[in-house]
Structure formats: structure tokens, C-alpha cells
Amino acid sequence: MPKWEHIAGLLGLITLIVGHYLGLFWAPPERMMGDVGRLFYVHVPVAMFAMLVFCVAFVGALGYLLTSRMEADWLNEAAIEVGVVMNVLLLMLGSIWGKPTWGVWWTWDPRLTSATVMLLTFVGVILLRQATQSPEKRATWSAVATVLAFVNVPVTYMSVKWWRSIHQMQSTPETVSEPMVFVFRVNLLAMALLMTWFIARRWRIAKHRAMAEAPAPLPPAPQVTS
């Protein structure tokens, strides 16, 4: 019997195909950025869900610290890995969008810079997880490091903003038209469904590994038959 997350995953795949088709061929060119503006439909949902997936990791971390239940740790583990994948994609997309609009692949823009720092912090958490055998230590350390990394994101953003800020074109509500909002929402939905599948699958892997690590239960007592 297929698990529930496969329904979300399949719907997500279909929605992503539809959303990308609409973004590439149906949506009008953006007023300032022209066809390059079509990157909006991939870049912004990825950015929002990278943050949101790290929020899930944060919830998992808090859940573990409050309840000590391993399920919360598996959620933390799953969401951090998915979040790192999203964060890498986010930075690459930002770079691809930056080249035609800013003329450079990279600038020390606050959002770009803090997203990079965010990636480094969560990669650090993954490496920390690998640095111990004990499941309890791993869960506690990871939860603590996740909370600190998460809280640090807005602080980093603020500091980089003060440090150096370049003026950039932002999509203000006036430049976003009706059809653009629709296409954007389709892509957001696709992302939500796909992230559900990613996190759920990764959670099952974490659970399976934890079960394999745990000492095997005693075999059932032999039935005595007369």
C-alpha cells in the first residue's frame, strides 16, 4: 500500500510541471525584467520554502528539547538536510538571476550573504550530527545547534544590511500583475507538496536508521506445545 506522502509527492510533481509551464510560456514578461523575470516563479518559492523548511527543523529541535522524543529529532534531521538542498539551489538561482539583472554573478547583498551564512551554519549542524555515535548526544547537540543557527539568521541579515547594502530592483506589489500572482501561487503549492514528500521520505530514512542502530529486541519465547 502506498504511503500518504506519495500522494503529496505525485501531486507536487504534477503541480510543478504545470507551474513551470505557466511560468515559462503563459505568464507575461515582467515589466522591468522582461523574460528574465520568469525566474521569479522558481527563485522566490525556493527562497520562501528554504526558510520554511528550516522553520520545520527548528520546530523539530524545540520538540526534541521539550519532549526528548526521537521522532522530533528525526524531523530535525530530515528538515535540515532538505533545507540545505533548498539553500544550495536558492544560492545558485540567485546567482543565475543576478547575472542578467545586476550584471554580476555575486554581490554582497544582505539577502544573498545571509543565505550563504545560513547554509554554512546548517552544514555545520549536519557535520556535528556525524561526529558522534550516541543517538541522545546527537539529538541534543543537533537541537541546540539548530536553535542557535535559526535565531542567528535575522541577526546576520541585519548586520550584513548595515555592513553593505546595494540598491536592487524588488518586485513591489504594483509591478506584480494578476496572472503573475496566479502562476506564483501554483508554484508555491508545488513547492509545498514536494517539500512534504522530501521531508516525509527523509524522516522515514532517519527512523529506519535509528531502528537499525537500536539493540535488537529479544526473540519471542518459543511456544511450548504439548
Partner: peptide, 19 residues
Amino acid sequence: QARGASVLLPLLMFPLVVP
């Protein structure tokens, strides 16, 4: 208490203390 402490501590601290 971790394996590979010498590289792990800087890796954890650097991004955190960026601000």
C-alpha cells in the same frame, strides 16, 4: 566530546559569529 573537534569547532563557530 565529538570526533574531529579541531575542524568542527571553527566550522560551527564561524558562521554563527558572523554578525
